[in-house]
Amino acid sequence: MLELLIYLQKMGNKEIGELVVYVTIVFLIAPIFIVVYIFLYNQRKKRHIEEKAQMQLTFASELTKAQLEVQEQTMQTIGADLHDNIGQLLSLTSLTLNSIELDNLDKARQKINDSIDLTLRSIKEMRLLGHLLQGDQLVALGLSEAIRQEINWMERSGKYEIVYLAEEEIPANNNPDKDLIVFRILQEIFNNIIKHAAATTITVKLDYSEGLLRLLVDDNGVGFAADDLPVAKHGMGLQNIQKRAGIIGGKADINSNPGEGTQITIFIPYP
């Protein structure tokens, strides 16, 4: 410090002036840098908040979409069930009752019994349909129960042998929004199996560990080359599965090879 003062004393007026100017310019740049940094950081904060709001909007719209799709799927199922199952049963009942000949009491009794049997089967079918009519309320019963109902319906077609393994330790404080999205993803996977897989056995596993919910759907269908599938052929189904899993902070792993079936695993942070 002393040497600096001696040096300054030796310096001329002009040199001191120049030194002060240079130091001042450096000292001016520093706060300008701070102000600019704060300005840019503030802009980043604003963008972050906007992105967060946008994500919330996307989530809300996806949730509504999933709700509508679940309802639509339910209506389609009910329509098909009424036409193919209950409608047929009631037509058969009507035909049986019409064909009763009161002169032949034994035969009439037999036909009445058949009609009662058909009516009981119709009532049973109606009850099952009643469960489906609850639509998205199905999820309110809990994700595991909703999946069970969906599997029951799939099994009734008689085309699939389905194994369902559900862990009992799924948190009681569930997240209804995430449940709905996961349920919709499962419906989407089942739709793909029905449309494209030609599978005979399906395994569904639902388990939970360390804050992560895992849903696995494995089928023995025709499979496809998951890695080589062109974007256009990737289909809305698979894209939707991945997009929806991403919206709730999770991911979907799709593994498939031609002739080796398809395995889809959904990982969701839960609850």
């Binding site: 300054l8 001191i16 002060v20 001042t24 000292f27 001016l28 300008i32 701070i34």
Partner: peptide, 20 residues
């Protein structure tokens, strides 16, 4: 901040400057 930080050099060399 710009004024008071920027004029630090001015303040540090005040004695020399004021003599000039």
């Amino acid at each position: 901040l710009l004024f008071y930080f920027g004029t630090t050099a001015y303040n540090v060399f005040y004695e020399q400057l004021s003599s000039i």
